[in-house]
């Protein structure tokens, strides 16, 4: 492929991924509202369009028409920058998550990932830790005590759980012997999914992912009964919407990471034995990735409406005294496995 073709294909992928992300994020909000309603024996929004399918558009238009209020004592610049950082981090992380194997079409081999970076996992960790800045800036610049408390809580929480997250990824990297997301997916061929091989690492990663995305049971940064709205108390209109979208985009990224690292990515076990045409096989595998992603996202929502919020000291206790040792134990377990079978 010439450079021009590579640029063209990458641009196409960027446009598709970005628009798909925006679309999925808004529908994830709708999905969350429906699922939460079902779990609580309600119906949820089902009025706008068939079964409320147009609800996200109504919500976005409403938010666009709202007045944008900036508190008098806010640090105006940081107040405006914070949601931008949140959105930037949320959308750019997705660039390295592969959603399918190489697509072979018209003699071109197109890898189904925006950027096939050989340090992809490092890139994800680096960018997601930038996300703390968005929340901390938002909390600090609002000039409100509730926002500040929310921001501080979130930074402490994210820093604590990043450690166990990093260590649980360590186990995966030992197996794959690479930081390339595609190589990690390929190392889990057949039923050698990391979730099955290293269940402890899977659980610690899952819990840390919940903490990183500020979802219940770890949504202390925006605990409504104590902190009004947490770090986004003083945000309104599209700035609030930006935080809202970023939160849900982060959920999709966390789900994408879980699928890539632990659930075998796009792979369907033993599909190559069926001898399907390569295009059909590729599409099926992309479908498998989407299916796994949706299943993990449903799990996120399901957990939210099942578990109560942790207290702050319990959160720190679990993070440092349980999750951290467990993720270390997982690395030892993986090392033993490799020593025996290699």
């Amino acid at each position: 492929m010439t450079i021009l073709e590579i640029v063209a294909f990458t641009l196409i992928k960027i446009v598709i991924i970005l628009s798909l992300m925006l679309f999925t994020v808004s529908y994830l909000v709708y999905f969350e509202r429906r699922v939460s309603a079902w779990i609580q024996n309600r119906l949820g929004p089902n009025r706008v369009g068939w079964q409320g399918i147009l609800q996200p558009f109504a919500d976005v238009f409403k938010l666009l028409l709202k007045e944008d209020i900036v508190p008098e004592k806010a640090n105006k610049k940081l107040h405006a920058i914070a949601p931008i950082i949140a959105l930037f981090v949320a959308f750019s992380t997705y660039a390295v998550i592969p959603f399918g194997p190489e697509l072979q079409i018209f003699n071109y081999k197109i890898p189904l990932v925006v950027a096939d970076v050989n340090i992809g996992i490092l890139f994800v960790l680096a960018l997601t830790s930038l996300g703390v800045y968005a929340i901390t800036f938002a909390g600090w610049s609002s000039g409100s005590k509730y926002s500040l408390l929310g921001g501080i809580r979130s930074s402490a929480q994210m820093i604590s759980y990043e450690i166990s997250m990093g260590f649980s990824i360590g186990g995966v990297l030992l197996f794959a012997e690479s930081l390339r997301p595609i190589a990690i997916v390929e190392s889990q061929s057949g039923w050698m999914w990391n979730a099955i091989v290293q269940p402890i690492g899977f659980i610690t990663f899952l819990v840390s992912a919940f903490a990183e995305t500020n979802r219940l049971p770890f949504d202390l940064p925006e605990a409504e009964p104590e902190l009004v709205g947490g770090f986004h108390t003083e945000y309104s209109s599209m700035k609030f919407a930006a935080f809202f979208l970023a939160e849900y985009a982060n959920m999709i990224i966390a789900a994408g990471l879980i699928v890539t690292l632990y659930l075998g990515g796009w792979q369907i076990p033993y599909i190559d034995k069926l001898g399907l045409p390569s295009l059909v096989e590729t599409l099926l595998q992309v479908g498998a990735f989407v299916f796994k992603l949706i299943a993990v996202l449903f799990f996120f929502l399901w957990i939210r409406w099942s578990l109560p919020r942790f207290r702050y000291d319990q959160l720190m206790n679990i993070g440092w005294k349980v999750m951290f040792p467990l993720s270390l134990l997982n690395i030892i377990w993986v090392a033993i496995l490799i020593m025996i079978f290699n």
Binding site: V35, I39, Q40, N41, R42, L43, S306
Partner: peptide, 16 residues
């Protein structure tokens, strides 16, 4: 256990 309980509730009749 808790997850199983909430999952069962998805299929129960709605009050709305």
């Amino acid at each position: 256990k808790g997850l199983a309980l909430t999952f069962r509730n998805i299929f129960r009749p709605k009050f709305t």
